[in-house]
Design a protein around this nucleic acid. Structure first.
Length: 666
DNA sequence: CTAGGGTTAG
């Protein structure tokens, strides 16, 4: 039988991998191999098993059964199956194969290959017990010096959040190579120690594109979007090859900071460099456009993709919901089912949000129940939160509370948070108190609960209570997250916090701020100071209002952007970001001095603010609730028009949110 | 004949 070994690839067997697409064809080849006795050769048998296992992952049972068709299967055959199973939906089956390998006689012992695959299986399963066992076997058999296994172990421990273990492995390597170093960089970043990752990255004697990608995605995953983009610029300056993965991380960073210009640039770059838009890259583009408020562009990318997976569908649906297009979100879900793509938990978050923004309570309930019934998906905390939001937004506060009380799991802060938010929208102080108390019980450092509660009190002009909350926050050392505003100018991102004087052009900014104030006052503007900064004196309030980070960012936009260019301010507050969009327009029905904030997500505090500049007079206000009456909403120069279908033809609309009956015009 | 590091949605 040794003469078979001269054959690099037996023609019949290579047929199985390359041109057999159906089970029927594989069966035919298989039968041939059995009849001719070729499968008796362990070498050819292994080749056969390997090619089905790796090229037809759906037929794993088939290839596993084929293992028995040779009395003495080789380690290679076992390894191929273990490897294939490690990537399958049932990775634990690779352990069964490993046990069979151990029992299968003296000659096939597990080798270093076997363990690289088993380590992968552990990482896939996030199984600590199994990881310890596999690691122990590695040590027992002396494979711990194999660099493939070392990097695998680092990856495995990082996946499980055991950075200490990853580090132990790493420290045991006398001369870590490029791959193990990159694995460690990624491990540190994944565990949130991105600064440490950077130190390690900088110390690397050589870096390839993958190492750079690890660093960039590390920043992006830690929420350090700016650093991710900085890193990307550095990568370009150093002339490192940029690939698809780089751009996915860059787009993700853009999404999180609402950097539409940078995102568009990345999109153009993909086109210019003829980079293939894979499913992953396409999904990242959809997410970027949707989160930056350009939902039309997001959908354009979506429809242009020929391959779509759950991520793609969920992102698009989530993007539609986020931009107030609840009905469209649900239509897309119908289409997704038609295309036989199975939804997962994340898809249902998008669906429920779609129902929520469209105010479709019953449809939301229906989907919530169908999750388990139709798709076998157990609702997670997020879904319960969405349901509370669904009831709460339309004003069914008692039902929302009822839903919380009947939750089969202990209500989490998010569920109470959704209720609290609904209480703010529908001005229910009593229930709001309950909800915020619950949140604080669960998360004592949750500043949001205090802030919203104090907003509820401020709303009903209950100043004593407002001050109580304030005192409580001080006593417990709860601090509000500093809000910051980001503005892009010529692709460069500038960040401002309240009262920020650190910008190199602050002198000009200050002059512009004063000019704005004067012009607004001269046209009769009176600062609307009561909802914010309640513990200050009136003059201080007004002063503080002028120091808002949005205002500073706008002033900077005014001095640095050309007239007619939209000023786009992105806020960092709270995830998920809700981002509106703008359309520059030449027609103007509004007087100069008006400022347009385009809020999305009914009753949400503004996370992202788009400002369309028509004239140099601008005023900005912290936030506006969509539940405010039109009169209330027109404060601080913010104009929010309530939607009236008769208006649509007359106005050049910027953004509309039919579910909220809000139309924003300029 | 096989193997290691980087990627998307909440």
């Amino acid at each position: 039988m040794s003469h078979f070994r001269c054959v690099a690839k037996h023609p019949t067997i290579s047929l199985v991998g390359s041109s057999c697409t159906s089970l029927r064809q594989i069966n035919q080849v298989h039968t041939q191999l059995l009849i001719t006795g070729l499968l008796d050769d362990p070498f050819l048998h292994a080749q056969f098993v390997a090619s089905i296992a790796l090229k037809h992952p759906n037929l794993l049972d088939y290839s596993t059964r084929a293992l028995d068709q040779n009395p003495n299967p080789t380690v290679f055959a076992f390894n191929s199956l273990i490897r294939a199973h490690s990537k399958s939906p049932n990775p634990q089956k690779s352990f069964q194969l490993y046990n069979r390998l151990l029992k299968s006689g003296h000659n096939p012992y597990p080798d270093n290959y076997t363990f690289t695959f088993l380590v992968r299986t552990c990482a896939q399963l996030l199984d600590c017990e199994a990881s310890r066992a596999v690691h122990a076997c590695v040590l027992k058999r002396g494979f711990e010096t194999d660099p493939h296994i070392q990097s695998g172990l680092i990856y495995m421990y990082a996946e499980m959040g055991l950075l200490g273990c990853a580090r132990k492995v790493f420290d045991g390597i006398p001369q870590p190579d490029l791959v193990t170093l990159t694995a460690m960089v990624a491990a540190c970043a994944k565990s949130g120690h991105v600064g440490f990752a950077r130190g390690l990255f900088d110390s690397m004697p050589e870096k390839d594109p993958i190492a750079w990608n690890a660093m960039i995605s590390g920043y992006a995953q830690c929420g350090q979007s700016r650093e991710a983009l900085d890193m990307f610029n550095l990568m370009q300056m150093e002339g490192v090859r940029i690939n698809e993965v780089t751009l996915v991380s860059v787009l993700s960073a853009c999404s999180h900071m609402g950097a539409l210009d940078q995102g568009r640039w990345a999109h153009a770059y993909i086109g210019r460099k003829k980079i293939t838009v894979t499913v992953t890259l396409g999904t990242a583009l959809i997410d970027m456009y949707a989160k930056c408020g350009d939902v039309n562009k997001a959908m354009e990318v979506f429809w242009g993709m020929r391959e779509k997976n759950v991520y793609t569908w969920s992102s698009a649906m989530g993007g539609l919901a986020m931009n107030g297009l609840g009905h469209e979100c649900l239509e897309l879900f119908a289409l997704m089912k038609q295309e036989r793509v199975l939804p997962n938990e994340v898809t249902f978050v998008s669906i429920l949000r779609g129902c929520s923004v469209a105010g479709l309570v019953e449809e939301g309930q229906m989907h919530f129940f169908s999750m388990r019934k139709e798709f076998g998906l157990e609702p997670l905390f997020e879904h319960y939160g969405c349901m509370v939001d669904l009831y709460g937004r339309v004003g069914h506060l008692n039902e929302a509370l009822d839903f919380i009380n009947k939750m089969p799991v202990k209500p989490h802060a998010g569920a109470w948070g959704a209720l609290l938010n609904a209480c703010r929208i529908h001005k229910n102080t009593k229930l709001g108190e309950l909800a915020s108390r619950k949140i604080v019980e669960l998360e004592s450092k949750n500043h949001g609960a205090y802030v919203v509660l104090s907003n509820i009190y401020a709303d009903s002009k209950n100043w004593d209570r407002v001050s109580d909350v304030r005192q409580m926050m001080k006593a417990k050392g709860v601090r509000k997250l500093p809000g910051c505003s980001i503005i892009e100018v010529n692709g460069e991102v500038h960040e401002f916090v309240v009262g920020d004087k650190s910008h190199p052009r602050y002198g000009e900014i200050e002059a512009k701020l004063e000019e704005i104030s004067k012009r607004l006052k001269s046209s009769g503007y009176v600062a609307n100071t009561f909802p914010v900064l309640f513990d200050l004196e009136e003059e201080e309030k007004e002063d503080a209002l002028c120091q808002h980070s949005e205002r500073i960012a706008i002033a900077f936009g005014l001095i640095s952007l050309k007239e007619g260019v939209p000023i786009r301010i992105v806020k960092n507050l709270r995830e998920p970001s809700v981002i509106p969009f703008y359309t520059p327009s030449s027609s103007s029905y509004i007087l100069p001095g008006d400022l347009f904030l385009l809020p999305f997500g009914m009753g949400e505090p503004l996370h992202m603010i788009d400002i369309v500049l028509k004239a140099a007079d601008i005023m900005v206000h912290e936030q506006v609730s969509l539940d405010a009456t039109a009169d209330e909403a027109i404060c601080g120069g913010i104009v929010v028009f309530y939607y009236d279908s008769d208006f649509v033809g007359d106005f050049n609309w910027v953004a509309s949110s039919p579910a909220q009956n809000v139309l924003l015009l300029f």
